[in-house]
Structures are given as C-alpha cells and as structure tokens.
C-alpha cells in the first residue's frame, strides 16, 4: 500500500472496519513506515483522550427553567387545555373519573410516604428571590454578573452581555461562579437586600440568584 493511501485508512484500522485485504496491505506498510506508525499511535492516544471525557449533565434547574419558558411561550397552557377530556364527556362522568383518580392518587401518595420516597418527587426548592423596584438596580446586578463571567436570564431567556434590562415586570436569574461571589458583590455595590454571603451554591459550582423587578412596588 502507498504511504498516502495508508494515511487515509488509519481511522478504519482503529475502528476495525477495514476489509481483510486492505487491512493486510496497511499492516504491511506500517511494518516499514515509521511515520505512519507514529500517526497511528498519536491518533489512538487522541481518541482515547476524547472518549475519556466525562459525560456532561444538564444543570439541575434545566427542567424547571424549560417549564417556565414553555409556559411563557403558551405551550404548556395549550397542552393543559387539550387534556381536559373529550368534548363529548358529560359533567357527571368527568366528576366520577376525577373522584376515582383522586382516590388512586391518594393511595399512591400514602404508599410512597410509607416507603419514605416522597422526597424524591419534591422539586428542588427555588433560590431566594430578591425583589427590586428600580430597573437601574437590576441593570447594576446584571452588569456585575457579566463582569465576573456570569450569565443573566430574563424570563428564562439568555440575555447577551451589555444589553439593557428593565421596563416592565421581569424575573431575572443570575448565575455566577461561586468563587467570584465576593468580586460580584463588590461590583454590585449597595443594592438593597443583597447579602454579603453567597445565597446558595448549586452542585454545578454556581450561585443562582433570582431577582424580580416590580417597578413601583
């Protein structure tokens, strides 16, 4: 096998997907070509490093933020309406179904409680909410967050650094590296209600701070 052709088949050799005749040709070439042997060894080490990367997990608040965003987009509300039962179902049959479902549900909860598994179903407590009346204070917090490499989400959507926030009522989620809380605190200055200590560090190593802007409150 020619050198250039051999270079093209190194991946397939590592994946053991080469037809036998090509494999024999490549192996014969490798026995005589140090450059191809080096390329193969480097490729193998690289793939081992790539495949050894840890699995990534979505942040713990991912599902709850998505639910909020889907509700704001009107998706969950529309789906709930569709779940109200077939149009032809009369009131008494709906009530009867509800009573049966409630009884089954109550029984299930009881069993779960007895098995002490109810905690698994309880959603993680939301982070504390800081209420602000002034859009300028919110802007200060957002800028302090960007300055320490944090992220800002308004009503679930990521806000690009440098954007102006404020106006109507808004819920803003600040996500900061826990190690830079003190720096954030200094950059934020005297925003009322902001504690000196980081409120809560998530398992992802980030501090989550929920800020609600209610102008005029």
């Amino acid at each position: 096998m020619e050198h250039d052709t051999a270079q093209l088949h190194l991946s397939e050799l590592l994946e053991e997907s080469l037809p036998p005749e090509l494999k024999a040709g490549l192996e014969a070439h490798l026995a005589t070509c140090a450059e191809c042997r080096d390329s193969l060894a480097l490729l193998e080490r690289t793939l081992r490093a790539v495949r050894g990367l840890p699995r990534v997990e979505a942040p713990p608040q991912f599902a709850s933020r998505l639910r909020r965003r889907a509700a704001q987009a009107g998706l969950l509300a529309a789906r709930r309406r569709r779940r109200q039962g077939p149009a032809g179902m009369n009131f008494s049959s709906t009530m009867a179904l509800a009573v049966v479902l409630a009884a089954v549900g109550a029984l299930l909860v009881l069993v779960l409680l007895m098995q002490k598994q109810i905690a698994l179903l309880v959603e993680e407590a939301p982070p504390p909410v800081l209420q602000l009346a002034q859009p300028a204070a919110l802007q200060t917090l957002a800028e302090a967050s960007w300055a320490v490499g944090g992220a800002v989400r308004a009503d679930g959507r990521l806000v690009p650094p440098g954007s102006a926030l404020g106006g109507a009522s808004l819920e803003v989620d600040l996500e900061l590296p826990a190690a830079r809380w003190a720096e954030f605190r200094r950059a934020a200055g005297a925003v009322a209600g902001l504690t000196r200590e980081a409120p809560r560090v998530g398992p992802d190593g980030l501090v989550h701070l929920l800020v609600a802007l209610r102008p005029g409150s």
Binding site: A58, P59, F62, R65, L66, A70, R153, G156, R157
Partner: peptide
C-alpha cells in the same frame, strides 16, 4: 455553558 443551556431549551421548545 450559558449559551448551551439556552440553546438546549430552544431545542426542546422547537421539539414541542
């Protein structure tokens, strides 16, 4: 990370 989470949510909205 922040862009990835934002985009992953958009993906699910799009799937919905």
């Amino acid at each position: 990370r922040a862009e990835a989470e934002d985009l992953a949510q958009e993906v699910f909205i799009s799937v919905f």
